[in-house]
Each structure stands twice: as C-alpha cells, then as structure tokens.
C-alpha cells in the first residue's frame, strides 16, 4: 500500500474544556473512502477542521502525505487537500462560475487570472454536480441544495488528492445525494484520491464508504473497515438509539427502532 495521504496520531480534541476525542490514530490512504459518524456535538466538525490544520489540537499530530501539517506552506497544502465546510455564508453576490473557479486559487500564480482552462474545469465540474446552465446565476439566488452543489463543484475543481467534506449531502435531495457520493467513490476508486466525509445517513455511509470512524459520546472511538465497525452494537451505543441491521439485495440496511 502506498503512503498515507492523511495520518492522525494520538489526536486529542477538546472544546471549552470538554474532551471530545482522545488518542485517535488512523490514516487515510489513496483509494479509501472514510465516513465519519457520530451524534451532534461528538466532534465531527472539530475533527475535520483539525485534520485540515484550521484549528489547533489539544494533543497529537496530523500529517499530510507523510509530512507534519505545520511544515506545509498553506498554498501548497491547498493543492493537496481540500475542504467543504458545513455552512458557507455569502455576504455578497457572485456568479456561480466565479465561485467554482475560486477552487483553482492555489494552482494560480499571484498575477495570473482565471482564463480558458479554469473556465473549462469549472464548467465540467458544474456538469458533474448537475448545474449545467447555472454558470451565470448569482449564488444568492440559488436554493440551499444548489449552493451546496456549487461549493462541491469548487472543491472538485480544486483537484486535490485528499478531500475532507463536512456533511456534503446535508442539503441535497435523494438523487443528488447519490450522485455526489457516487462521484466521490469514483474519485477514490479510479483516481486514487482519499476521501473523508461526515454524514448522518447510516445507509448512505455504508453504501459508499470503505471505512468508518464512529465517534461516541465520552470520547469512545471505533474505527476500521465498514463491515467491522458498522455493527448494531457500536451504532446503537454511539447514537444512544437502538439500530437494527438487515440485509437487502446484498446490502446492509440500518433501521432505527
């Protein structure tokens, strides 16, 4: 197996004096799709921000492609790993194509302007999230789900080896949820990218992820291959709600009591 894209070692995270995660260690390798599961306030966003280096950690290290994150130049890191925040708040209007082309920022020199190539990339990424024809719309006129797809297109345009996504399908309808997650799975399978996303839908997680990190209240963490960690016991414990696992057409389904 080739070197890891993201390596988390002995990570300790806390918010306001409360420890969320302790002694968390795992790696994301090329071709792997990790999902991050856990109840509200269990530290999913905090963990993703820390893995991006956007937040200080209370202990442990985060490595990107085998090098400590703090040793990376921010712009170079921006060419290797990308992030989709849970909420993007737009104060000013901008056209959809401008927003998507912004994903190319780390790849352009200080004096370069986005030109034909960036436009082509942005248009093909918009097609990827089913927003063809939206390129000249103002983002402020879009619906929540459409905005989330614009942000996804910008992340895809960034073209990084590692993609971290904080609830990438939270605002999407059923069809677009499947579409986006399939695209992420395809990136991992065919382009050897590493993916880590948080999600609340257990069935989508089990269907598209190869591995899972499950954060339970009290800092208990379960991680590993999907089949091994997405069990009735672990999930029921983590969410504080009884979950039953059934098989349907060869796929596991999770049904809350």
């Amino acid at each position: 197996m080739s070197g890891s894209l993201l390596e988390v070692r002995d990570l300790r995270l806390g918010v306001a004096g409360r420890t969320l995660v302790d002694q968390l260690s795992f790696s994301v390798h090329p071709g792997e799709v990790w999902c991050l599961l856990g109840p509200n306030g269990s530290g999913k966003t905090t963990f993703l921000l820390s893995a991006m280096g956007l937040r200080d950690v209370q202990g442990g290290t985060v490595g990107l492609q085998g090098r400590s994150l703090s040793a990376w130049d921010p712009l170079q890191a921006g060419r290797v790993r990308g992030f989709l925040p849970q909420i993007i708040h737009d104060a000013f209007g901008a056209s959809v194509i401008e927003c998507v082309m912004m994903g190319r920022h780390p790849h352009l020199g200080r004096w370069e302007w986005e030109g034909g190539p960036e436009r082509d990339i942005a248009l093909s990424m918009l097609a990827q999230v089913d927003l063809t024809g939206f390129e000249n719309r103002d983002v402020l006129t879009l619906s929540g789900g459409e905005r989330q797809r614009v942000a996804l297109a910008a992340l895809f345009a960034q073209d990084t080896s590692l993609l971290l996504l904080d609830e990438p399908v939270s605002h999407l309808d059923l069809h677009h949820q499947i579409m986006v997650l399939s695209y992420l799975a395809m990136l991992a399978r065919e382009k050897e990218r590493g993916i880590l996303f948080s999600i609340h839908d257990l069935n989508l997680a089990a269907r598209f992820a190869s591995h899972a990190v499950i954060l339970a209240p009290g800092g208990r963490v379960s991680l590993g291959a999907i089949d091994r960690v997405m069990t009735e016991d672990i999930l029921s414990n983590a969410f504080g709600h009884r979950v039953t696992r059934v098989e349907h057409a060869g796929r596991p389904l999770f049904i809350p009591e």
Binding site: G78, F83, P85, A94, M102, H105
Partner: peptide
C-alpha cells in the same frame, strides 16, 4: 492590488479561504 484574488477568496468566508491556502 497583488492581494486582490486572495480577497475574492476571503469574501467566501474565512474557513474556505484558509482551506484554499490564504494566510
């Protein structure tokens, strides 16, 4: 002027900007 494109990115929000390599 030389910071103008970074300012474009910053307008999309601090988290987005930092993820894209803006100091």
């Amino acid at each position: 002027y030389p910071m103008a494109r970074e300012l474009n990115v910053l307008l999309r929000g601090e988290t987005v900007a930092r993820a894209l390599g803006v100091r």
